[in-house]
Design a protein around this nucleic acid. Structure first.
Length: 109
DNA sequence: CTAGTGACTGTTT
DNA sequence: AAAACAGCCACTA
């Protein structure tokens, strides 16, 4: 068995998110087997290089808001666009309706 | 070594 | 709705 670093587990969990669904940081941490480590999730994704394997855009905050912050907000637009491409739309408040798009374990879309 | 900060969350005021 | 607190881990000064 290869040694899995916490980061690898996090990436693994993020990759488990089906298209058209989103997950919160806390949810990813939980799926990765590290409850209450949501901060590490954010840190891991921050250092992640987008190789197209990890759908980082499917990870949003617990309120459904996009936590990504950049000086010009380009990153936020990027995530929003990627989500829209999968059918995930934002409401007037600029947040994802978790009631509709949150990934539920064992529930296929 | 200590202190501050961060792609955070949940509970309590 | 908004703010305060506590919790958890890694990195930086």
């Amino acid at each position: 068995m290869a040694a899995r670093t916490p980061e690898e587990r996090i990436y693994r969990a993020v990759m488990r998110i089906p298209p058209g669904r989103v997950a919160t940081y806390g949810q990813i941490a939980r799926v990765a087997g590290m409850p209450r480590h949501h901060r590490q999730v954010g840190r891991a994704l921050r250092g992640l290089v987008d190789d197209g394997l990890v759908p980082w855009h499917r990870v949003v905050s617990a309120s459904g808001t996009i936590s990504l912050r950049s000086a010009d907000g380009s990153a936020e637009r990027e995530q929003r666009q990627r989500l829209a491409r999968e059918g995930v739309v934002l409401d007037a408040r600029g947040r994802v309706s978790l009631a509709r798009f949150q990934w539920k374990r064992g529930v296929a879309p």
